[in-house]
Simulated scan of single mutants.
Amino acid sequence: MIQRILTIILVVFLPLTVIGNLMHFDEVLLFALACITIIPLAGIMGRATESIAIHSGPRIGGLLNATFGNAVELIIAFLALREGLTQVVQASLTGSVIGNLLLVAGLSFLVGGIKYPVQKFNPSIARTNSSMMMLGVVIALIIPAIFSAQNPNIANNLSIGVAVVSLALYLLGLYFALITHRHVFHFAGDMEEEVAEWSMKKASIILALATLAVAYVSETLVHTIETVSHTLGWSEVFIGVIIVAIIGNAAEHSSAILMAWKNRMDLSMEIAVGSSLQIAMFVAPLLVFAGWFLGNPLPLVFSWPELAAMSLAVLLTAFIANDGESHWLEGAMALGAYLIIGIGFYFL
């Protein structure tokens, strides 16, 4: 049912976005069209990647899922970075981290908790992911802010060093989870038990076409951000933290919530927390390197509100998830934290 709805949205809104670009529609309307269109495109990219991953086997498949899991956010951020919108890029990274940890996990706990009084998931995975998140967010992103405050001239070089270390540790984490300790990270619903939706060839073609479409629509989205900011009175930080982050993850959000409703909390948590790890330790470093290549450096020096929001999201998720159990009240607490943070960024 969800896939059918997303297909209808895509068939209607992708042509409208193209026509709007050609006919020079009002930029606020174009922004809205682009936001809506990206949601089903992200869903199609996820389905294609999943099919390719299943055909490729569990180890390569896990790597493919990790690599393409946040492809939409990476495309949007790359285009924004090319335009010099570094504040929007930093805000979108912040929004993706807190959105996955608080909004997605919170909704998953809440929705699943309505149906099941207590839901269980692998506590070993939860603890490992919590440790990685503490490193990738609380340490790797706060340290540049502290040291750059003492000497702003070192921000870019420091960011490149942090990006190298974060990316290396993320790859080591994948090796740990997919090869040396795969038995610890095995849970119901692993890829060998699944059937691919599409053939390898069909999935590859669909993934390529969807990626091109996302790039086109994201170009529209990025070009209209400044106009939307001035017209609606929204700061670029709020647009990045809330709007861009939510639309880039919308399809993934629905998958996590659906898994929770089916009492497959291991998969739900892997989507929510795993995506945050990808953003902090994979996507952010790649964007640092991309900024250096484009001549628009992206320092990993976030504002203190952004750092506080991400750090508190990591700490709350760690406290909630480390026991390997969840219920609806924990979901409500995570959602409440997200709403408080969202209100703060709106008035920032």
Rank of each mutant, 00 (worst) to 15 (best):
A272Y: 06
S311Y: 08
A53Y: 11
L101E: 09
V288G: 03
L267G: 15
L178T: 06
M132C: 05
W261D: 13
T180G: 01
S204M: 10
T317M: 12
G113T: 06
A208S: 05
G95I: 07
N153T: 11
L169A: 13
P152C: 11
P123Q: 11
D266Q: 04
L74M: 15
T86C: 01
A308M: 13
G57C: 01
I39V: 15
S130N: 12
E73I: 09
A80D: 10
M132D: 07
M133N: 08
L103G: 00
A71F: 15
S166C: 11
I206D: 03
V72G: 05
A105T: 15
F31L: 05
H230S: 13
F185W: 11
I36R: 05
V104A: 05
L232H: 03
I225C: 02
T37M: 03
A34E: 12
G136V: 01
G69P: 02
G324M: 08
Y338H: 04
S326K: 01
M133H: 07
G61N: 07
A210P: 04
M45N: 11
E236Y: 00
A177N: 10
I257H: 04
R4S: 13
N21Y: 12
F78E: 07
L33H: 05
L171V: 15
A42N: 07
G136E: 04
L339M: 12
G248A: 06
A91F: 09
S276Q: 12
F121D: 10
N65M: 14
A168G: 08
I343A: 13
L307Y: 09
F238A: 01
A105F: 14
F31M: 02
A318P: 00
P58T: 14
G113L: 08
M200R: 15
S218Q: 02
V89C: 06
V273Q: 06
A188L: 06
P58R: 14
I2M: 07
I98R: 04
A337P: 00
L79I: 15
L267A: 10
P58V: 12
A318R: 02
L30W: 13
A215L: 06
V301G: 05
G20M: 06
V104F: 11
E330C: 01
Q278Y: 09
L107F: 13
A208R: 00
P40K: 03
V137F: 08
V241D: 09
L221Y: 10
H24W: 04
P144T: 12
A272T: 07
